[in-house]
Design a protein around this nucleic acid. Sequence first.
DNA 1: TGCCCCCTGCAG
DNA 2: CTGCAGGGGGCA
Length: 284
Amino acid sequence: MELGDLRFRVPELPEVETVRIGLENSLLGRKITQTRILITKMLKGSVTDPAELDRILSGERIMRINRRGKYLIFDLESGYHLLFHLKMRGHIVVVPLKEPDGKYLSMGLTIDNSLEMRFHDMWTWGEIRLVNNTELLNHPGLSEMGEEPLSDNFTWESLKRSLSRRSKTAVKTALLDQAVVAGVGNIYADESLFRSGIMPTRSAGSLTDDECYRLHKSIKEVLQNAINYGGTESDDFIDTSGNAGNYRPLVYGRSGKSCTICGNILQRIKMGGRGTVYCAQCQS
DNA sequence: TGCCCCCTGCAG
DNA sequence: CTGCAGGGGGCA
Protein backbone atom coordinates (compact mmCIF):
# COMPACT_ATOMS: atom_id res chain seq x y z
CA MET A 1 0.00 0.00 0.00
CA GLU A 2 1.26 3.48 -0.88
CA LEU A 3 2.07 5.72 2.03
CA GLY A 4 -0.63 8.28 2.54
CA ASP A 5 -3.44 5.90 1.64
CA LEU A 6 -6.59 6.30 3.65
CA ARG A 7 -5.77 4.03 6.54
CA PHE A 8 -7.11 6.62 8.94
CA ARG A 9 -8.42 10.15 8.83
CA VAL A 10 -6.61 13.12 10.25
CA PRO A 11 -9.03 15.49 11.95
CA GLU A 12 -8.93 18.81 10.10
CA LEU A 13 -11.52 21.57 9.98
CA PRO A 14 -14.35 19.52 8.36
CA GLU A 15 -13.85 16.59 10.72
CA VAL A 16 -13.67 18.84 13.79
CA GLU A 17 -16.76 20.72 12.58
CA THR A 18 -18.57 17.37 12.17
CA VAL A 19 -17.65 16.51 15.76
CA ARG A 20 -18.75 19.99 16.92
CA ILE A 21 -22.18 19.61 15.34
CA GLY A 22 -22.60 16.18 16.95
CA LEU A 23 -21.59 17.50 20.37
CA GLU A 24 -23.87 20.50 20.03
CA ASN A 25 -26.80 18.18 19.32
CA SER A 26 -26.15 15.95 22.30
CA LEU A 27 -24.53 18.18 24.94
CA LEU A 28 -25.71 21.77 24.56
CA GLY A 29 -27.29 23.17 27.72
CA ARG A 30 -26.52 20.01 29.67
CA LYS A 31 -24.55 19.66 32.87
CA ILE A 32 -21.17 18.05 33.46
CA THR A 33 -21.62 15.94 36.59
CA GLN A 34 -18.25 14.20 36.81
CA THR A 35 -14.92 13.99 35.00
CA ARG A 36 -12.13 11.45 34.72
CA ILE A 37 -8.71 11.79 33.14
CA LEU A 38 -6.92 8.60 32.20
CA ILE A 39 -4.00 10.15 30.32
CA THR A 40 -2.93 12.96 32.63
CA LYS A 41 -0.28 14.38 30.32
CA MET A 42 -2.98 15.43 27.84
CA LEU A 43 -4.28 17.91 30.40
CA LYS A 44 -2.40 21.12 29.53
CA GLY A 45 -2.36 24.67 30.86
CA SER A 46 -2.80 26.02 34.39
CA VAL A 47 -5.12 23.25 35.60
CA THR A 48 -3.19 19.97 35.34
CA ASP A 49 -4.52 18.25 38.44
CA PRO A 50 -7.40 15.87 37.57
CA ALA A 51 -9.01 16.39 40.99
CA GLU A 52 -8.97 20.17 40.53
CA LEU A 53 -10.43 19.83 37.04
CA ASP A 54 -13.20 17.62 38.41
CA ARG A 55 -13.90 20.13 41.19
CA ILE A 56 -14.21 23.03 38.75
CA LEU A 57 -16.16 21.19 36.06
CA SER A 58 -18.64 19.30 38.22
CA GLY A 59 -21.97 21.10 38.00
CA GLU A 60 -20.89 23.24 35.03
CA ARG A 61 -23.40 23.74 32.26
CA ILE A 62 -22.25 23.69 28.63
CA MET A 63 -23.54 26.95 27.14
CA ARG A 64 -21.90 26.92 23.70
CA ILE A 65 -19.73 24.63 21.64
CA ASN A 66 -17.51 26.55 19.25
CA ARG A 67 -14.77 25.65 16.83
CA ARG A 68 -11.75 27.76 15.93
CA GLY A 69 -9.48 26.14 13.36
CA LYS A 70 -9.02 22.59 14.62
CA TYR A 71 -9.84 23.50 18.25
CA LEU A 72 -13.12 22.72 19.95
CA ILE A 73 -14.07 25.26 22.59
CA PHE A 74 -16.77 24.60 25.19
CA ASP A 75 -18.07 27.78 26.80
CA LEU A 76 -19.13 26.96 30.35
CA GLU A 77 -21.65 28.74 32.53
CA SER A 78 -19.06 30.09 34.98
CA GLY A 79 -17.03 31.71 32.19
CA TYR A 80 -14.41 28.99 31.93
CA HIS A 81 -13.67 27.44 28.55
CA LEU A 82 -12.77 23.83 27.96
CA LEU A 83 -10.51 23.36 24.92
CA PHE A 84 -9.90 20.19 22.96
CA HIS A 85 -7.47 19.50 20.14
CA LEU A 86 -7.69 16.08 18.48
CA LYS A 87 -4.23 16.34 16.87
CA MET A 88 -3.57 13.20 14.77
CA ARG A 89 -5.65 10.37 16.15
CA GLY A 90 -8.06 11.88 18.64
CA HIS A 91 -11.77 11.18 18.45
CA ILE A 92 -14.73 12.05 20.60
CA VAL A 93 -17.89 10.06 21.11
CA VAL A 94 -20.96 10.45 23.30
CA VAL A 95 -22.22 7.17 24.75
CA PRO A 96 -24.49 5.96 27.55
CA LEU A 97 -22.58 6.11 30.82
CA LYS A 98 -22.91 2.36 31.41
CA GLU A 99 -21.16 1.47 28.12
CA PRO A 100 -17.82 -0.29 28.81
CA ASP A 101 -14.67 1.73 28.17
CA GLY A 102 -13.03 1.36 24.77
CA LYS A 103 -9.32 1.19 24.08
CA TYR A 104 -7.20 4.37 24.29
CA LEU A 105 -9.70 6.26 26.45
CA SER A 106 -8.02 9.47 27.60
CA MET A 107 -10.82 11.43 29.23
CA GLY A 108 -14.48 11.15 30.12
CA LEU A 109 -17.03 13.86 30.92
CA THR A 110 -20.17 12.53 32.57
CA ILE A 111 -23.23 14.45 31.40
CA ASP A 112 -26.35 14.63 33.61
CA ASN A 113 -25.33 11.33 35.25
CA SER A 114 -26.52 9.46 32.16
CA LEU A 115 -24.18 10.04 29.22
CA GLU A 116 -20.45 10.25 28.88
CA MET A 117 -18.44 12.24 26.38
CA ARG A 118 -15.31 10.19 25.75
CA PHE A 119 -12.08 11.43 24.23
CA HIS A 120 -10.00 8.58 22.82
CA ASP A 121 -6.49 9.10 21.51
CA MET A 122 -4.22 6.25 20.51
CA TRP A 123 -1.22 8.52 20.13
CA THR A 124 -1.96 10.60 23.23
CA TRP A 125 -0.98 13.74 21.36
CA GLY A 126 -4.34 15.36 21.96
CA GLU A 127 -4.80 18.44 24.11
CA ILE A 128 -7.33 19.10 26.86
CA ARG A 129 -7.14 22.51 28.50
CA LEU A 130 -9.30 24.43 30.95
CA VAL A 131 -8.86 28.20 30.55
CA ASN A 132 -10.37 31.44 31.79
CA ASN A 133 -11.09 34.34 29.45
CA THR A 134 -7.57 35.80 29.68
CA GLU A 135 -5.93 32.44 29.07
CA LEU A 136 -8.24 31.89 26.10
CA LEU A 137 -7.17 35.20 24.54
CA ASN A 138 -3.49 34.47 25.18
CA HIS A 139 -3.58 30.87 24.04
CA PRO A 140 -0.52 30.55 21.75
CA GLY A 141 -2.30 28.58 19.02
CA LEU A 142 -5.54 30.54 19.04
CA SER A 143 -4.16 34.06 19.31
CA GLU A 144 -1.90 33.58 16.28
CA MET A 145 -4.52 31.84 14.21
CA GLY A 146 -5.44 33.10 10.74
CA GLU A 147 -8.91 33.73 9.33
CA GLU A 148 -11.65 31.12 9.55
CA PRO A 149 -11.80 29.94 5.93
CA LEU A 150 -15.59 29.64 5.91
CA SER A 151 -16.19 33.12 7.31
CA ASP A 152 -16.66 36.30 5.26
CA ASN A 153 -13.40 37.64 6.69
CA PHE A 154 -11.53 35.12 4.58
CA THR A 155 -11.23 36.71 1.14
CA TRP A 156 -8.81 36.14 -1.70
CA GLU A 157 -7.12 39.39 -0.72
CA SER A 158 -6.69 38.27 2.88
CA LEU A 159 -5.28 34.97 1.62
CA LYS A 160 -2.88 36.84 -0.62
CA ARG A 161 -1.76 38.99 2.33
CA SER A 162 -1.16 36.03 4.64
CA LEU A 163 0.67 34.12 1.90
CA SER A 164 2.88 37.13 1.24
CA ARG A 165 4.01 37.01 4.89
CA ARG A 166 5.50 33.59 4.11
CA SER A 167 6.47 34.43 0.56
CA LYS A 168 9.57 32.23 0.35
CA THR A 169 7.89 29.16 1.82
CA ALA A 170 6.31 26.59 -0.50
CA VAL A 171 2.59 27.31 -0.85
CA LYS A 172 1.71 23.84 0.46
CA THR A 173 3.80 24.38 3.61
CA ALA A 174 2.30 27.85 4.04
CA LEU A 175 -1.24 26.45 3.90
CA LEU A 176 -0.42 24.08 6.77
CA ASP A 177 0.58 27.08 8.90
CA GLN A 178 -2.47 27.80 11.07
CA ALA A 179 -1.56 31.51 11.10
CA VAL A 180 -2.15 31.60 7.32
CA VAL A 181 -5.55 29.89 7.21
CA ALA A 182 -7.23 28.29 10.23
CA GLY A 183 -8.01 24.58 10.15
CA VAL A 184 -6.41 23.52 6.87
CA GLY A 185 -4.29 20.38 7.24
CA ASN A 186 -2.58 17.95 4.92
CA ILE A 187 -5.67 16.54 3.18
CA TYR A 188 -7.35 19.83 2.35
CA ALA A 189 -4.13 21.64 1.47
CA ASP A 190 -3.46 19.03 -1.23
CA GLU A 191 -7.08 19.05 -2.39
CA SER A 192 -7.28 22.85 -2.60
CA LEU A 193 -4.03 23.09 -4.56
CA PHE A 194 -5.15 20.38 -6.97
CA ARG A 195 -8.52 22.03 -7.57
CA SER A 196 -6.92 25.39 -8.20
CA GLY A 197 -4.26 23.89 -10.50
CA ILE A 198 -1.33 25.14 -8.42
CA MET A 199 1.85 23.13 -7.84
CA PRO A 200 2.42 22.62 -4.09
CA THR A 201 6.12 23.41 -4.48
CA ARG A 202 5.51 26.94 -5.79
CA SER A 203 6.66 29.60 -3.37
CA ALA A 204 3.74 31.27 -1.58
CA GLY A 205 4.81 34.69 -2.82
CA SER A 206 4.88 33.62 -6.47
CA LEU A 207 1.11 33.22 -6.80
CA THR A 208 -0.61 35.67 -9.14
CA ASP A 209 -3.82 37.44 -8.10
CA ASP A 210 -5.76 35.03 -10.27
CA GLU A 211 -4.13 32.04 -8.56
CA CYS A 212 -4.86 33.49 -5.10
CA TYR A 213 -8.46 33.98 -6.20
CA ARG A 214 -8.71 30.37 -7.42
CA LEU A 215 -6.98 28.97 -4.35
CA HIS A 216 -9.27 30.93 -2.05
CA LYS A 217 -12.32 29.63 -3.90
CA SER A 218 -11.00 26.03 -3.81
CA ILE A 219 -10.27 26.14 -0.07
CA LYS A 220 -13.83 27.31 0.67
CA GLU A 221 -15.41 24.76 -1.68
CA VAL A 222 -13.31 21.82 -0.55
CA LEU A 223 -13.91 22.48 3.16
CA GLN A 224 -17.64 23.12 2.80
CA ASN A 225 -18.03 20.08 0.59
CA ALA A 226 -16.19 17.89 3.11
CA ILE A 227 -18.38 19.17 5.97
CA ASN A 228 -21.48 18.34 3.91
CA TYR A 229 -20.16 14.78 3.59
CA GLY A 230 -19.38 14.51 7.29
CA GLY A 231 -15.59 14.54 6.77
CA THR A 232 -13.18 12.49 4.70
CA GLU A 233 -13.88 8.83 4.08
CA SER A 234 -11.71 6.40 6.06
CA ASP A 235 -11.64 3.15 7.97
CA ASP A 236 -11.89 5.07 11.19
CA PHE A 237 -14.96 6.88 12.47
CA ILE A 238 -15.37 10.59 12.73
CA ASP A 239 -18.60 11.78 14.25
CA THR A 240 -19.75 11.51 17.86
CA SER A 241 -22.16 8.66 17.04
CA GLY A 242 -19.43 6.58 15.43
CA ASN A 243 -20.20 7.19 11.75
CA ALA A 244 -17.53 7.48 9.07
CA GLY A 245 -17.31 10.44 6.72
CA ASN A 246 -18.08 10.15 3.01
CA TYR A 247 -15.94 12.85 1.43
CA ARG A 248 -13.59 11.34 -1.18
CA PRO A 249 -10.38 13.27 -1.83
CA LEU A 250 -9.23 13.63 -5.43
CA VAL A 251 -5.49 13.52 -4.71
CA TYR A 252 -4.85 12.93 -1.00
CA GLY A 253 -4.16 9.24 -0.41
CA ARG A 254 -4.29 8.54 -4.16
CA SER A 255 -0.60 8.64 -5.11
CA GLY A 256 0.19 6.16 -7.88
CA LYS A 257 -3.43 6.21 -9.01
CA SER A 258 -4.85 8.09 -12.01
CA CYS A 259 -5.80 11.73 -11.88
CA THR A 260 -9.58 12.00 -12.10
CA ILE A 261 -9.24 14.90 -14.53
CA CYS A 262 -6.45 13.91 -16.97
CA GLY A 263 -5.72 10.27 -16.17
CA ASN A 264 -2.02 10.81 -15.46
CA ILE A 265 -0.45 9.04 -12.48
CA LEU A 266 -0.55 11.18 -9.33
CA GLN A 267 2.85 11.95 -7.82
CA ARG A 268 3.87 11.90 -4.18
CA ILE A 269 6.65 13.94 -2.64
CA LYS A 270 7.58 14.93 0.89
CA MET A 271 7.37 18.57 1.88
CA GLY A 272 8.37 19.69 5.35
CA GLY A 273 7.96 16.13 6.54
CA ARG A 274 4.41 15.84 5.17
CA GLY A 275 3.32 13.63 2.31
CA THR A 276 2.15 15.70 -0.64
CA VAL A 277 0.19 14.34 -3.61
CA TYR A 278 -0.35 16.23 -6.84
CA CYS A 279 -0.92 15.89 -10.57
CA ALA A 280 2.07 17.10 -12.58
CA GLN A 281 -0.22 17.57 -15.60
CA CYS A 282 -3.05 19.54 -13.98
CA GLN A 283 -0.98 21.61 -11.54
CA SER A 284 1.65 24.15 -12.53
C1' DT B 1 12.82 29.04 9.33
C1' DG B 2 13.52 24.08 9.31
C1' DC B 3 14.19 20.00 12.13
C1' DC B 4 13.23 17.13 16.17
C1' DC B 5 9.98 15.10 19.05
C1' DC B 6 5.74 13.28 21.15
C1' DC B 7 3.27 7.85 20.11
C1' DT B 8 1.46 3.58 18.18
C1' DG B 9 0.02 0.49 14.38
C1' DC B 10 1.19 -1.46 10.50
C1' DA B 11 3.87 -2.37 5.98
C1' DG B 12 7.86 -4.40 4.35
C1' DC C 1 12.47 -6.11 13.51
C1' DT C 2 12.88 -1.46 11.50
C1' DG C 3 11.04 2.50 9.67
C1' DC C 4 7.51 5.44 8.65
C1' DA C 5 3.30 8.34 9.16
C1' DG C 6 1.90 13.05 11.01
C1' DG C 7 -0.11 18.42 13.93
C1' DG C 8 2.14 21.62 16.00
C1' DG C 9 5.25 23.27 19.76
C1' DG C 10 9.99 24.10 20.87
C1' DC C 11 14.44 25.08 19.85
C1' DA C 12 18.78 26.14 17.30
